[in-house]
Each structure stands twice: as C-alpha cells, then as structure tokens.
Nucleic acid binder design. Structure first.
Length: 493
DNA sequence: ATGTCC
C-alpha cells in the first residue's frame, strides 16, 4: 500500500485518484509498523473537503479522527479534530549553567525533583501549589493571559523574563481577523456561558502545571552533535555542552480541553442540523469553511487556548529555574525555544497561504525561511525539540531545505507503539523500573507509569533516522535524561 | 489530552 520513492520517503495513493497522494516519511521498519487504523485515518483525512495535502510522519499512530503524527493542509477549511483536544500541546527547553557533575549526586537530584514538584504539580485537575510562590492569578490577569499570551505585561505580572518571547514559535496568538480585539470579544461571549464563567478561575490556577498523560518535565545533559552545522546551530540556540537543560512537555490543560470539546460538539450539531455528511463518515473530522462564523469562533477559541498554553509553558520554565536556584543558588538559565506540535498555523505552502494543521507534528523552517527573518534563527533554522524517551534520550534538531516535502514539518517525538491498555497488560513493572535504575534516572513517583514506559513507544533511533534519511532535519544535540517529573498516579494500576 | 462522563 505504501509506495517507496527513497529509503525514507514514500506515498500512499488517495482513495480518490484525482487527489495528490499522502506523503509518508519513514524507513522500512517504520512503514511496516503503521497500524491499520492509522492508515485508514490518513486516507479519511486526505479525502476530507478542502484538504490540499497530507503528510504522515514516522511517529504516526491512530488518533482522534486524523492520526497523531500527521500534517493536514487546507487553503479553505479549518479542522478542529486534526488540531486535537490539547490545543497547542508543546515542548520547551530551558538551558541552565549547571554542569552535569553538579547533579551526579542523587541527593541533589532528589532535592531538585522536590523543589520542582512543589512549584509545578503533575496530574489531572492539579492547580498551582500555594499559587506558585506568591503569584496571584486574578480573573483580570487570566483574561489578559487568554487575550495577549506572553505579552510583556503578562510576563512581568507572572515573573517570566519577557525576553523569552523571542524564543517562542508564537509568543501570542491573535483572533480570526488577526486582531487582539477578536479574542477579547470571543472571551466575552464565552463568559456568557455560566459553566465557563464558573470554571474560569480554576482553569487559570492551572497555569504553571504539567497535567497528566504523556506530559512531563525532564532534566537533561546536553551533548552537541560533532558537525560544523550542529556546533553553529547549538551556539545560536544557546546550548551548553555537558550542562543541564530542562525539557518540558505540556499544553493548554483543562481550558484547551474544554474549548476543543465544546467546538467538536457545536460543529457536530451544525452538521446534523444541516444534514452535512461527515468526511469518510467520521464525526471526528468535522470542519468549518473559512470565513463562516463557525470557523471564526473556532480560530478564536484555538488562539485563546494557545495563548494559555504559551503562558503555561513560560511560567513552568520560570518556576523550574526558581527551583534550580533554590537548590543550587546562583543558577542561571535561559529559554532555548518553545514550539508546539498541536496547532493550526497560517503558513505559505506551495506558494500560497494555507492552514497547516499539525497534529503531533513540529514546524520545521530551515535557515533562510522568510518567516524566520525577524527571529534569532534566520541563519540556522529554529530549534526543533523532539522528546524520545528517558532511557534512549531526546533530540534537538534543525530543519534542512528538504523539509519542504513534508510541508516544513517533522515528527513530534517517538510516537506510541502500543496503546495505554496494551502497555499495562504487556509491560512488566519491575522491568520498566529496572531501566530507570540501570540508567541512573530518577523520577518523582514510586513506580514509573507503564503506559508511559520507553517500550510503549516506537524505537526513537529509527524515527530519527527516518527524519535524517528523508533530508528533513539534522541533529544538533542529544539530550540524556537524569531525572523525570511526571504524573505517577497510574503507576501501580 | 481531560475535574478521565454533565
């Protein structure tokens, strides 16, 4: 079914042969590993109205309507499902000046884990502990967070260095008409709903928290790839060889979840009212044609959730830095980058502006891309932050011109190889925990959640090899985990 | 992903 063009590039013909085929990135081992549901979802998504292009990345697996690990492009339609329920789920990396030798001692690492967990809790529904050291999130500030994202005023109110904004893929999102007013207006409409209004203060108190599932914080040792391009990029990114960097994965928490779920419901109702057929009979592929009220509302909700996710990440990084400073006084740190893998962006694809839905996919603009002109990364490409797993490491990459073939996108990590239920059934707790013991990686839980174990995910080296062989990006630095912060409430299930 | 079903 997958036709091979190069070692790690192939295609799947669309069911409707008048459509261009689905681009598939992945070596033979990766291609053989895609499950049937994932391929079916890719075919469904390809034939959905207004979709001009679909890319399946090596980390792809079955998702909500569209596969996690795909890129869906449309000049005319917006698709909430292929953005996902965790709007602007993202990665961020904080580089510290702490040397790896300074955290070799387990006692130091345990103290760091405690100091970080004290400020940035994990788990569903968790809010900030003691409102994270004096930070008070009033309703007014919460509104500003949603409307402005990481603006100077919001950053200053929350103790976030405002200069980190230039280290963001997008530090603030605007509404459907590219104004901030649209978001202010939309928020007023949302507040007319009593449930939203009641839940709003609680949602805002989740700023600076990780949540559950695959979200995590991880202390890493940086190992810069030994090539001239990698060294040059690492210097621009501000990476420090053999020093501790902190990698975070989280998104828009309960707010994004509520806004996304509500949009699915609203659009489904519209489809049913109008008798509009669902793409490939899948309700999860509901859409709104651009220019309609429904599309505008969705784009505004997406921007509000994205702004929240942005400030959430920035605050987590500020709190993590504070935690390091408490345990290791004098620690300095700066944000390397913050980049999403669950968002739709208006980008130039094949010479025209289109909505690029990245569902578990990371933007990959190479050096010289016009959109990077005003950023520090015009000469190198922006950092691409790819979590693998604690045992086998994570990776910082930078895009190559070849990324054009995947609509300037790469994967977002390793990708699941087994579902959560299968992981609980198939993986042995002792074996999972032994990995952490053997590799001397500490974590905050009593046991590591089996559904999040390294072996519940695909072979990260094979995924990375796919990206490199396809010519999409090159490695800049390897990240080696030293401790993990993660919701461990399901570890003993 | 998610006060894991309003």
């Amino acid at each position: 079914m997958i036709h091979v063009i190069e070692e790690a590039v192939g295609f799947i013909p669309a069911r409707n042969t008048s459509l261009t085929p689905i681009t598939v990135i992945g070596t033979e081992a990766i291609r053989d590993g895609f499950d049937g549901t994932c391929i079916a979802q890719a075919l469904n998504s390809r034939e959905a109205p207004g979709v001009s292009e679909l890319v399946l990345n090596p980390d792809a697996h079955a998702g909500y309507g569209a596969p996690v690990g795909c890129v869906m492009v449309s000049p005319t339609h917006i698709y909430p499902g292929p953005v996902g329920v965790d709007i602007k789920c993202s990665m961020s990396l904080l580089q510290t000046d702490v040397h790896e030798d300074d955290i070799r001692d387990k006692t130091v690492r345990r103290a760091l884990i405690e100091a970080i967990c004290e400020r940035t809790p994990t788990g569903a529904g968790k809010s900030q502990r003691s409102v994270a050291k004096g930070r008070v999130i009033t309703e007014e500030l919460g509104r500003k967070v949603c409307i402005e994202g990481a603006s100077v005023e919001v950053c200053e109110a929350l103790g976030i260095p405002p200069e980190w904004a230039e280290r963001c893929e997008d530090s603030s999102h605007r509404g459907h008409d590219r104004t901030t007013e649209a978001l202010a207006n939309r928020l007023e409409v949302l507040f007319e709903n009593n449930k939203f209004k009641e839940r709003f203060p609680g949602k805002m108190r989740q700023l600076g928290t990780y949540g559950g599932g695959n979200h995590f914080g991880e202390a890493e040792i940086v190992d810069i790839v030994n090539t001239p391009e990698a060294k040059r990029a690492a210097e621009v990114f501000g990476l420090k060889q053999d020093h501790v960097a902190f990698l975070s994965h989280c998104g828009s928490r309960g707010l994004g979840h509520d806004l996304a779920s509500n949009q699915f419901k609203v659009l489904e109702k519209m489809f049913d009212t109008w008798g509009t057929p669902y793409p490939a009979d899948d309700k999860k592929l509901v859409y709104a044609p651009l220019g309609t009220q429904e599309a505008n509302d969705y784009l505004d909700d997406m921007a509000i959730a994205a702004n929240f996710a942005t400030v959430n990440h920035m605050l987590i990084n500020a709190l993590v830095l504070e935690a390091f400073q408490e345990v290791l006084p004098g620690t300095e740190g700066h944000l390397v980058y913050f980049i999403s893998h669950n968002i739709a962006r208006h980008e130039k694809v094949r010479d025209k502006f289109q909505w690029v839905h990245r569902k578990g996919a990371t933007r990959a603009f190479p050096a010289g891309h016009f959109a990077l002109k005003e950023t520090p990364f015009y000469e190198t490409g922006h950092p691409i932050l790819l979590p693998g797993n604690p045992r086998d490491g994570s990776m910082v990459m930078a895009a190559l011109p070849g990324a054009e073939k995947s609509c300037y996108s790469v994967n977002h990590g390793a990708g699941r190889s087994m579902g959560r239920r299968a992981a609980f059934r198939n993986l042995d707790q002792k074996t999972v925990d032994a990995d952490f013991e053997d590799y001397d990686i500490l974590h905050n839980g009593r046991a590591y959640p089996r559904d999040e174990a390294p072996d519940a995910y695909k072979d990260f080296q094979e995924v990375l090899a796919s990206v490199e062989k396809a010519g999409l990006a090159h490695g800049v630095a390897r990240l080696k985990a030293r401790f993990v912060i993660k919701d461990a409430s399901k570890a003993d299930d």
